[in-house]
Amino acid sequence: MLNYNGELLDEKNLLLSANNRAFKYGDGLFETIKATKTKVIFWEDHYFRLMASMRMLRMKIPMSFTLEYLEQEILKSIETQKEANHYRVRLTIYRKDGGFYTPETNEIDFLIETSPLNHQTKSEYSVDVYKDFYNYSGLLSTVKTTNRMLNTLASIYAKENELDNCVLINENKGVVEVANGNIFIVIDKTVKTPALTEGCIKGIVRKKVIEIIQKNPDYTIEETTISPFEIQKADEVFITNAIIGIQPVTQFKKKTFETVFSEKIAQSLRFLEITAV
């Protein structure tokens, strides 16, 4: 079942117009969220990121779009799914139909999709740099818009080259993120991740991992510029997103990595997921 503007519909009964702006212009944004039957994990963080993104894209936020309302709509949608430990939720917001590049209105529609989640991290995980196109730095790149062509092409490249993922770089040849998440590297006792000014998504789990590391007296966290060459010098590399949590990287080009630190951070993140209100 899908939740379209608060109404539960069978998937075959959802009719989107040929003038849908997310389809025609990528004029939309989305949140990918992990949930249980009774709890939307890190929901407050997702909600405030969503509100900030809608304001940045000049979308009109409905008065009904409260933290509580959207949470209940998500949980209502999950109730239609078969029993599982966790669920993948995609909340998509897009401007209502009409107009060309200039929309006729800034009012929005929303769509909630849910499915049981059975994801497991991989024990071996290889990545390399995707060089065909750049992920341009700038504030707009930090928003999860429905225009994900670069991520799609990088994922195709990874599949064609028997990789698990690709590192995206910006116009300055700096590391931005991977095709489906943020990236962290560990060198000695310093953990580095690309700064938001590099063009990376303002990831929810990225934020949580930074907070975890900031509380660890043995490690320093830096949001900074990272070159692809630094990845090869790292002791460990891991990627993050709301669904997988933390996925350790075991190979970049010919370099292999340990996974000790990333596994400890993954344990701390799981504890946060369980205890988060």
Rank of each mutant, 00 (worst) to 15 (best):
G245R: 15
E258P: 08
G199R: 12
T240C: 10
T224Y: 01
G203F: 14
V249T: 03
T197W: 13
K233A: 11
C200K: 07
E258C: 12
G203P: 10
A195C: 01
V205K: 03
K254W: 01
E222V: 13
E258Y: 13
E223G: 07
E222L: 13
K202P: 13
L196W: 11
F261N: 07
I243F: 14
E198S: 04
K264T: 13
Q232M: 09
E211C: 04
I265F: 14
I244W: 15
E236H: 12
I246Y: 07
F257I: 03
K215A: 09
F238P: 15
C200R: 07
E198L: 00
K215S: 12
T197Q: 10
R270G: 00
L269W: 15
I201C: 03
K253S: 01
R206I: 08
T259F: 14
F252W: 09
V260A: 07
S262H: 15
I201A: 07
I243Q: 10
I213M: 09
T224H: 08
A234M: 10
Y219Q: 01
K264H: 03
T250P: 14
D218W: 05
D235H: 12
E236V: 08
F252A: 09
I239T: 14
I231M: 07
V209P: 15
T197H: 03
E198P: 14
V205D: 02
R270D: 02
E258T: 11
T259Y: 15
I265S: 12
V237P: 11
F238S: 08
I213Q: 05
Y219D: 04
S227E: 02
Q232S: 13
K208E: 11
V209D: 04
K264G: 12
K264W: 08
I201F: 15
I221W: 14
I239G: 08
P217H: 12
D218S: 00
K215P: 07
V205F: 05
D235T: 03
I212L: 03
V205A: 02
E198H: 09
I244Q: 02
E198Y: 09
P228H: 00
D218A: 09
I239K: 02
G199A: 04
P248Q: 03
P248H: 06
E236S: 02
P194V: 10
K207M: 01
E258L: 11
T250Q: 05
Y219I: 00
